[in-house]
Write a protein that binds this DNA or RNA. Sequence first.
DNA 1: GTGGAGCTTGAATCCCCCT
DNA 2: TAGGGGGATTCAAGCTCCA
Lengths: 392, 392
Amino acid sequence: MSGATAMELPLDQILRGECVEVMRMLPSGSVDCIFADPPYNLQLRGELRRPDDTVVDGVDDDWDKFSDLAAYDHFTRDWLSEARRLLRKDGTIWVIGSYHNIFRIGAILQDLGFWILNDIVWRKSNPMPNFRGRRFTNAHETMIWAARGQDSRYRFNYQAMKALNDDVQMRSDWYLPLCTGGERLRNEHGLKLHPTQKPESLLHRVLVSSTAADDVVLDPFAGTGTTAAMAKRLRRRFIGIERHPDYAEAAIGRVRRETPLPHDAVATTPMKREAPRVPFGSLVERNFIAPGSIVCDKSRRLFATVSPDGTLICGAKRGSIHKLGAMLTNAPSCNGWTFWHIDRDGELVPLDALRAESQAQESTESTATAPLEGHEMNDIADLPNERSAIAG
Amino acid sequence: MSGATAMELPLDQILRGECVEVMRMLPSGSVDCIFADPPYNLQLRGELRRPDDTVVDGVDDDWDKFSDLAAYDHFTRDWLSEARRLLRKDGTIWVIGSYHNIFRIGAILQDLGFWILNDIVWRKSNPMPNFRGRRFTNAHETMIWAARGQDSRYRFNYQAMKALNDDVQMRSDWYLPLCTGGERLRNEHGLKLHPTQKPESLLHRVLVSSTAADDVVLDPFAGTGTTAAMAKRLRRRFIGIERHPDYAEAAIGRVRRETPLPHDAVATTPMKREAPRVPFGSLVERNFIAPGSIVCDKSRRLFATVSPDGTLICGAKRGSIHKLGAMLTNAPSCNGWTFWHIDRDGELVPLDALRAESQAQESTESTATAPLEGHEMNDIADLPNERSAIAG
DNA sequence: GTGGAGCTTGAATCCCCCT
DNA sequence: TAGGGGGATTCAAGCTCCA
């Protein structure tokens, strides 16, 4: 490869090499959308064990190590600058990260002139717990979605996203599972091939929301090729760049095995609706029942005091509404929602009724009732054939 | 006002003035926790505004944009530097923002030496919809929770958070409604007094998770005083700083109307690390378990004999309940309290249960059941003046 | 086949006091 | 201050295995 001459656009390929070097060879303004999953600079200090003494297989790869924040910033500015050059005027970029790196990426995106459209929270349905009980469970990652500039007339497939979300606007928080099971690429020993393979569902939503069929999608950190595979499936064109030979090889094979969906099927897929779970503690926080309140059972024989963390206290005993109910009645279990009551003007009201009230208030409080301005939205078009001449 | 002399800590007050100027007068290392909701409306108006609300004089577009970001960074670095000085070594800070400003704040926090512990997503149950249908509904805001430094031994009330969430670890995504209804402060025309008043439930969770009763909580952008009001309610000490006279006045009245919860109502599930340590030997001394007793692991495969000094003996090996458990299982460490059991009528009981029994007996034997020493909360009304002299 | 128990695993900045 | 040791700490999925 000669670094100076811009090559023709190598479509539907996984290119092996350093992402900045390879990007330098591609022509300006040639890409519709970029999805980037750069190293997070995790800075793990030592071994971490689960309470059962098994060792957590953390990300200790060399590619995630940087000497300091300045080195990470320099790396980030380099690849984002090239990415911006490759993006056409109305194109958009997605970058995913965690709190370790996403603030640096967001600031540099803004410094370079990108215009942030949304920050999207990927809420994981099955995150790894916090084993030492020293922080909140790190249960999400953040994606920044940005246009090339403030005046970009970018693509957002509003109707497709709304349809994907049971006909209400898609929100900035997405609830999706990790990449596990058969989707996870494994080596001959059955071990995960890549420590941070992203779920296909995530890329599905990204591509359906912000690209059209036949759009060119670039992934500068292609890894095992999730972006490329989903682009092929959804009949987008793709360019993947990957430095590590093993990952690149796996990605090439994966994309080759992928079959594009039928033309008329490149549309929305239904999404499971989440049922909101209401912890008792949230009723306390929201002052539906104040800390210090007294609750009692139906027969007014057992009493307990509500504490600010949502536990109940009765003498020396403390526990959740369920646990304390079980303890005081010597039962193996207890539904605290129906067991405990508050006295409201002499009448006993079960906690379950309070919960129902809180949920009702939540939905009526919503400000989301205004109609949308009626301008036409781009939706996904039907487009010509796949062109997957995959190269190495 | 002489910026050089540090004043005594003005507890339980709303101070009117520019936050950096006021902070400069407070003594270093005097604050346990900071909650900050800095302004981030700089680019949302037709004209560009500096953080002090003055209009940026348009020269040319590029310069303006750069000037705006640079001005915001400068402002952010200023107040965060003072905040870090005021924070005691093991204190933590919370900063809330949206994608407009949170990336700059996060990067500067890291640059200043703060150590990010979590980024917390406040998912709004009732967000404003996206009226133009050109983006995802912006349905969340981001909070960064950070310790003063990498080696801070910060407070995290793990058990309280777990209790608040129905006995599973609290995650980094919080689902809470906006501040509406009676909680929202309004002016004489019924219009909302402050554009971004935060819900009390959010501050409840923040304060319960990361502060103890009597801790000093600082809010440099106090607004209508949500932080101060919740601190008073939960029996924390507070210092609020607010520049705008109308907001400060509203906050002072609001805090005055707030009543602290009873002492016994603000107690949350205690952290086990803070429980008094009970050496295993004391159980032997007090004959909860007799010397010569046999203990075994859960599967009855490993056995050991209790010696009078509280060590366990297995063949030639001898050590503490922890050491011997680790030795016999070839593990790097072992919690002997949960590893070893005694056989009680054919049923295995962990040593941990014995310890709980001993502690329960201790507390019932104890005569010391008096509540915590109550310190009088300064009410704003009781103070000679509102200290607005502090500020310019 | 089927259901339940048990095992494995996931981008993780994961302890703290005393000597 | 570096080292030693007490002892606190996990949730949701998907898979295997066996009854």
